[in-house]
Write a protein that binds this DNA or RNA. Structure first.
Lengths: 126, 126
DNA sequence: GATACTGCTATCCTTTGGGATAGTAATATC
DNA sequence: GATATTACTATCCCAAAGGATAGCAGTATC
């Protein structure tokens, strides 16, 4: 108790660990974006690739595999010719909705706030 | 309308953009952790460094500068000897609480779920 | 005069994320 | 037989994130 670290209680550390866990499974530039897209319905590989404009197949493939491992996405192969593969979100992915919604809401108000700031700066030149 | 991209409406794109904005300002391994720590009260530089066990001063310094730029953290210098510097969160940082709370809650239930899965796997060996 | 404390900065190096390009199997179409 | 399609994989490469180590200014203490 002599280190100056006073309020790092177990409660605070538990929160930090839980947050780290969440950020770990959602890591990377694309996972949340894929989930948001799939919330509107299943999509095929090339469809996802076209929607996520700058993603390369290698990266998309890796993200989808990781999403599958975490039970956020289910991969379904159809025996058509040529083969088609469909990706859809699982019910478990819906548990991420509070996170996704809070991220979206905050981003929306943050952008509005920045635009407001810019307007005011414009009105008051040096 | 001939690309197979059907449900990428403006609403979906707006959501993606807002989410990208949020992830951008919270990017990196440490920013959310710093904010969580500071929610319990102001801390000094070395105090933060000791709490975030593996952070180096260079990285902590960079994170704090970026948090300051986004008005999440206020830096206060005290003319003591040797000089002390205190970091505290701003009211604007409190707007991140829904995000932080949803991340914490999800991480908590996810960990519980994984432990539950491991128990069940243990009960049913091949 | 050596050491310790604060709050950093500077330099170097490694790891990771992720982009670019090309190629594959199987079939269908021109 | 060349080309297109789907859903990828393989290889290479680059930039950014972030870790390791050292140092600095100013004062106080031993």
């Amino acid at each position: 108790m002599s280190t100056g670290v006073k309020h790092i209680t177990s409660e605070c550390n538990g929160a930090l660990n839980a947050i780290r866990d969440t950020l770990y499974v959602l890591s990377g530039k694309w996972k949340i974006q894929v989930i948001v897209l799939l919330r509107d319905g299943p999509m095929r590989f090339n469809e996802l690739q076209r929607s996520l404009v700058d993603i390369t197949p290698k990266v998309l493939s890796k993200e989808l595999r990781e999403l599958e491992m975490n039970e956020f996405v289910e991969r379904k192969v159809f025996n058509t010719v040529p083969v088609t593969v469909s990706y859809e979100i699982t019910p478990y992915a819906a548990t991420l909705n509070p996170i996704i919604d809070s991220l979206r809401e905050w981003g929306t108000q943050h952008r509005a706030r920045i635009i407001e700031h810019m307007k005011q700066d414009g009105k008051q030149p040096a």
